[in-house]
Amino acid sequence: MAISVQQLTKSYRVHHKEAGLRSSLRNLFARRYELVEAVKQVSFEVAQGEIVGFLGPNGAGKTTTLKCLAGLLHPNAGSAEVLGFTPHNRERAFLKQITLVMGQRNQLLWDLPAMETFLVNQAIYGVPEREFRATLQELVALLGLEPLLTKQVRKLSLGERMKCELAASLLHRPRVLFLDEPTLGLDVTAQAAIRDFLRAYNQQYAVTVLLTSHYMADVTALAKRVLVIDHGELKYDGDLHALVEQTAPYKLLRLTLQQPVDSADLTRLGEIESLNGLEVTLRVPRDATKLVMAQVLASLPVEDVMIEEPPIEQIIRDVFQHGASYA
């Protein structure tokens, strides 16, 4: 196992701050502290070469878990093991095999071309010259960095910068990648480019990837397996498709009609999700999809029909709202 987490618990002591001058003054002398449990007894394992997506709302504990695994935080209880190391001991042999990329953070030298940062990282990780050149060449090709290498970092666009960040983080050929919101703030094209790169890189080198993202598309495109975390608790660990089937035992039928029909005719076939002139979306039970489809074709004046999975955003929202455990 590349990563093994047992009953991991991490809590923060944060001071309690009320609004107003008076309480601010009181805070000056006697602060009231509160213990916030960011991660509660989370356990999971990840095999070498797997891509696992972390899903959860803001403050769910995704980043905290990632930081525990990257050795930045000491867990309060439980244990974590990455590549056979205890992360928070931050041994060199461990740090040389992992990498951490944070979407909102910058490690590139701002006023210099990205190449200078690459050289710094080469020295930091002690990468031999030949290996460095070879790796760099591959990354440049995969990410299309050629025209960016000589531009000052501050003159790059956000997407270009992220590509350079990724390259800088991979020059030492880490075996485990911790990616915290790697596509944050990027436009759709840049997001897709980063995604394609990560998929190709994972397939080529069988690196283990732990990924958090707000963009569901990142997770659905990259990870077969997801960990759903909410309020610090692991709510689901498993196949993304299985999660969809469990949580949403229905599919969506999108119909384009030739002429308006009575809504009663539609309700007979399935639950109306939306009705917009001639565009209708019906919710039908997963196992009755084929049957309903036949009925629709037989009884309604349809121009076009499509069967769709419900959007993953909605499913995740359902998981959080109902709070049920699917693990």
Partner: peptide, 13 residues
């Protein structure tokens, strides 16, 4: 504040 320290601490130096 900027979290740069996180990058420093994950380097094998």
């Amino acid at each position: 504040r900027m979290g740069t320290l996180d990058y420093i601490l994950t380097k094998p130096v």
